[in-house]
């Protein structure tokens, strides 16, 4: 395997002579992220499997495609585009959901596995700070997984497009607009949406990582039971549901943050279709819930760093 480090090590006969400062601070971070990808291959394999499942189902559905397309062409042209886009949206959502589930399990193991397999003693014997380690792990659900999901979704949608084009052309039907989904626009919306989801769910990822670094075992229970217990105590003690509402807002509220304008043009029976015009980055960035969530996420991650300094193998 060729890496940038090969050349560094071999052209440097006397490492003692080279100042340690030559190693930039981003290098340990970069290699730590790569290490996470080596360890948790589900980060890219799970979205690929989801894509394979989607494509398998879509391939079967192409049997009826010519028939459906003829029916579609009889409809109001304004609705055609939305209906054509449905399987593409569905593919995106299936892969996004897979990515979210992977993120949850990744976070729960992130600071737990290294303590369980005693590897933490090896990692700590290297000049990588606890901050770098925790940041590299936080980068997985916040940056790496969204990018993996994005690439997988785009590739899946392109394959779907080619598959349907082949089937349609073979049946003598038109391949082009208006019955081709606006993939470029959809990919921009997807990228924006993945960013919104990552930022909105950051406090959840932070909480899961904190639990991962603290719990000796059953990280899953430690992650999910205390918030439920808190809801229960509040309900019994004060007959109020403020904390439960807060959780519900955090879990479901990203959709409101995602698009402020009312959805339009799509029948309620179909998955929501969002166009570029409906995105409201300024509105999202001025949502207090976003910044409150990011502050909480930062606090959780800071606590996780503090905790990793002190934790020993379990």
């Amino acid at each position: 395997m060729t890496t940038p480090s090969d050349t560094v090590a071999e052209t440097d006969p006397d490492p003692r002579a080279s100042p340690p400062a030559a190693l930039s601070t981003t290098r340990p971070l970069y290699w730590s992220v790569r290490r996470e990808l080596w360890e948790s291959r589900s980060i890219y394999i799970a979205p690929l499997i989801a894509a394979a499942v989607v494509l398998f189902g879509f391939a079967i559905s192409t049997v009826n495609l010519p028939h459906n397309r003829r029916a579609l062409l009889a409809l109001d042209p304004a609705r055609q585009g939305a209906i054509v886009a449905i399987p593409y949206d569905f593919a995106a959502m299936a892969i996004i959901l897979t990515g979210f589930i992977v993120a949850i399990f990744y976070c729960l193991g992130a600071l737990h596995n290294e303590r369980r397999d005693r590897g933490i003693l090896f990692w700590k014997s290297l000049p990588v700070s606890d901050l770098t380690t925790v940041l590299s792990k936080a980068a997985i659900p916040l940056i790496v997984l969204p990018l993996a999901v994005f690439v997988t979704v785009i590739a899946t949608q392109l394959v779907m497009l080619v598959m349907s084009a082949v089937v349609l052309a073979a049946n003598g039907l038109s391949v082009g607009a208006p019955s081709t989904p606006p993939l470029l626009q959809m990919s921009l919306v997807l990228l924006y949406g993945l960013g919104v989801i990552a930022l909105w769910y950051a406090p959840i990822y932070g909480w899961l990582m904190l639990v991962s670094g603290g719990a000796r075992r059953t990280t899953f229970l430690w992650a999910f039971l205390p918030p439920l217990a808190l809801c229960l105590v509040e309900k019994i003690a004060f007959d109020s549901t403020n904390f439960a509402s807060l959780l519900a807002y955090r879990l479901g509220g990203f959709w409101e943050a995602f698009t402020v304008h009312p959805r339009g043009g799509v029948g309620h029976a179909h998955p929501p279709q969002v166009g570029l015009a409906q995105l409201d980055p300024v509105g999202f960035l001025s949502t207090p819930g976003l910044w409150a969530g990011l502050a909480v996420a930062a606090a959780f991650l800071a606590a996780a760093v503090w905790q990793r300094r002190r934790r020993e193998p379990i």
Binding site: S5, D6, V8, A9, P20, P28, W31, L126, P127, V128
Partner: peptide, 13 residues
């Protein structure tokens, strides 16, 4: 790879 990546005094050869 990893040790070479993070350790300034590692001589991979």
């Amino acid at each position: 790879d990893y040790v070479a990546g993070v350790h300034p005094r590692f001589d991979r050869a």
